[in-house]
Design a protein around this nucleic acid. Structure first.
Lengths: 242, 242
DNA sequence: TTATATAGGTATGTAGGACATATTTCAATG
DNA sequence: CATTGAAATATGTCCTACATACCTATATAA
């Protein structure tokens, strides 16, 4: 797409006699790539001031327009911030900002959706050690509160909501904010896939291990037991894998 | 940053008396958001032709420049493709394209790097069930070949390379392409963190369980055994968590 | 002197026009 | 009928201009 360019300058690229250059990337693609390399190679750190748009344009021998298209991308990723007169500064990017915009079941193929769903299963099993490392008493109480609410629920929609809340709480308990945000973004996809698994009757299969059992193991068991229990809890989903 | 806008039009936003509008997002931010909503709400599917730049600009009452900045972002994410006269088409986005550009240890905070490293540990433990579901004889052979090569290596750099190769092979064996690409992108970060863990002497701690043992369990054991073994294999890394 | 108010400068944000380029469509020509 | 060539068109790039917000510094008032 826009990667694997050689590290030649823009000037060298255009002064290539009359031959068509090998790269088929647009100017914006090339400038974006070059800027990212530049920021890193120059050792810029978050907070550092960056050159002005016009200076970049002149240095790369492209229009300010092209530079702005490239900068717009980096701005979207949270890599740079701009203020009116102060210019631009490098900032710590949001690693998940790109993902956030793309996670829609209408846009992704069944294959990728399937992969992301498997991703979830992998995370919830593998997360076990982090949970036992960082669980707090208040977390357990919160989980128990959720389970208590589950008892009195008839509506299937509410049941799904509480299920999501239970698992979301586990992610939060992992103490890994990136992990938590990742899961949060995936929730809409999960609901979509669960609907598919459910089939026309709308019934969702339930695993052999309940939320209560998971809590109990979290309190008195160990990571290995929790992994096995979680797998049984997610068994209906695993049944669809092949 | 650029999210959580209400769904009001541009015209409504500017004709707000003299009051400062709540939204502080640029036109490009708003157009990007609006276009993504539009594509999804219109039920566009990958391959479908999209409106022309000028039409979008007129419809949203902004300049073509602004539209192009927004489209440039979506193009970067692989969400749209363009050809010279044919116009633009929606395409299946690359969920990891945004991530790919940001995973540089020089850009991310120690905290996020730590989270991503934990992510890896979680994945390798949780991946176990997928491995046993999809492992093939040829994969095992390949793993054994890697281990054989490890025996004859003195150079620490080569040792790290073969270690990465071993674990990369496991990800490939999971049959989950998204998972595999994710891990591939994280490798540079891992090397960076491993260097930190190693300390000034440059020695990297080795887990109690070797690659050979992992292979043996993969052949004759079960997912639970593999999880425990993998955790012991990664023990030096877990030792840094708290 | 200190604080406030005002004026000017500056970098980004937006608009609009122009032309190049590539590719499709279609007509002309052998 | 096949090939060539011209016209049409949407994107890619460039340029200029101005609005906007914000920083700086100077001037004015307490």
């Amino acid at each position: 797409m826009s990667s694997n360019h050689r590290s030649d300058t823009f000037a060298e690229t255009v002064s290539n006699l009359g031959l068509t250059p090998i790269v088929n990337a647009s100017m914006a693609d090339q400038v974006e790539e070059k800027l990212r390399q530049y920021f890193i190679q120059q050792g810029f750190k978050p907070g550092d001031a960056l050159p002005k748009e016009i200076e970049i344009a002149q240095a790369l021998n492209v229009s300010r327009n092209v530079v702005r298209e490239a900068l717009s991308r980096l701005r979207m990723l949270g890599m740079i911030e701009t203020r009116k007169r102060r210019g631009m500064i490098l900032s710590e990017p949001d690693v998940l900002s790109g993902l956030e915009r793309l996670l829609d079941p209408n846009l992704l193929s069944r294959e990728v959706l399937q992969h992301l769903f498997e991703f979830r299963l992998v995370l919830e099993i593998g997360m076990s050690d982090l949970l036992f490392l960082r669980k707090k008493e208040s977390d357990i109480v919160q989980l128990k509160t959720i389970v208590e609410r589950e008892v009195n629920v008839q509506d299937n929609k509410q049941r799904v909501e509480l299920d999501v809340l239970f698992h979301s709480t586990l992610y939060r308990m992992s103490g890994n904010e990136t992990l938590r945000r990742f899961q949060k973004m995936l929730i809409p996809l999960f609901n979509y896939i669960v609907d598919i698994e459910a089939g026309p009757d709308g019934k969702t299969a339930v695993g052999a291990v309940s939320h209560s059992v998971l809590i109990h193991i979290l309190e008195q068991g160990n990571p290995q037991e929790f992994q096995e229990a979680m797998k049984k809890h997610l068994e209906p989903h695993y049944a669809y894998l092949r």
